[in-house]
């Protein structure tokens, strides 16, 4: 049984003449414990798949399931306990008036935990932030520290599936590596399944086992990361995307 399964997923925004089809007929499976990457240009619908799964993009058709359980229109507590998401921009994903402590304790409270104090300490420790960060506000944190808080928040309900929406693209190159290593460690520690969106093929190559290449809302090709490294692709678009990621090559 796959951890995540998408079959013929269509997602659109707007109605009538304004309708934009962001994802068209996406079909793929993510195995438990796997790290699956979605790559493609900006606007190719990578993040939209995640937003449809979590209910942030309300207009969708097709079939989605989590651990074999189909996802309906309304998602229950159980769903949010299983699937959590880390957002792209750590500067926008933390409430500006809430301290780290407030963010984490509310999350834990919403998921019905009662031993909130020790859990907060454990979470901060898990993401490499000491107890001194607990009562800080977001403006007292750096970008990398904020993203660690966002990861701690996503880990709070002890999910088995983590959606990563370009978790490092808003960060410094040096901090990117720290966050990616942290994510790799956490995956091993908590047996997590990752679905990761990125346009940085180096990041995807480092993290993922399989990738899906997207263009204009459609999945062009699904291939393993070794095939990607060896440039063994069947689709010309994938090849041109991989080529572009190698930088400018003088012919």
């Amino acid at each position: 049984m796959s951890a995540l399964s998408f079959e013929g997923l269509n997602v659109w925004f707007g109605e009538g003449r304004d309708r934009v089809d962001a994802v068209k007929g996406a079909t793929f499976q993510v195995a438990p414990g796997e790290t699956f990457g979605l790559v493609g240009e900006s606007g190719s619908g990578k993040s939209t798949i995640m937003r449809a799964l979590t209910g942030l993009a309300p207009h969708w058709s097709g079939h989605m399931s989590v651990n074999g359980r189909p996802v309906g229109r309304r998602r229950d507590k159980e769903f949010y306990k299983t699937v959590q998401m880390v957002f792209q921009d750590p500067y926008a994903s933390l409430h500006p008036r809430q301290s780290v402590d407030q963010v984490l304790s509310e999350t834990l409270y919403l998921h019905g935990f009662t031993d909130i104090e020790p859990r907060i300490e454990k979470l901060l420790d898990d993401v490499g932030l000491g107890p001194s960060f607990r009562f800080r506000y977001p403006h007292q944190l750096s970008g990398g520290q904020r993203q660690r808080v966002a990861i701690a928040r996503a880990l709070a309900p002890e999910p088995s599936i983590l959606l990563l929406d370009e978790p490092t693209s808003a960060l410094d190159v040096s901090v990117q590596a720290e966050i990616l290593n942290l994510l790799t460690d956490l995956r091993a520690e908590h047996d997590l399944t990752f679905l990761m969106v990125s346009h940085d093929l180096a990041v995807v190559g480092h993290m993922c086992e399989r990738i899906a290449v997207m263009q204009f809302g459609e999945i062009v090709e699904i291939l393993g990361v070794d095939e990607m490294r060896a440039m063994q692709t069947t689709q010309p678009y994938t090849r041109s995307l991989l080529k572009a990621s190698l930088g400018y090559i003088r012919d």
Binding site: T54, L56, F87, Q88, A92, H95, L110, H111, A150, R153
Partner: peptide, 13 residues
């Protein structure tokens, strides 16, 4: 529609 409101919604609030 900001990310931090989306994040709270994802906690089931």
């Amino acid at each position: 529609n900001s990310d931090y409101i989306s994040a709270v919604r994802l906690q089931g609030a």
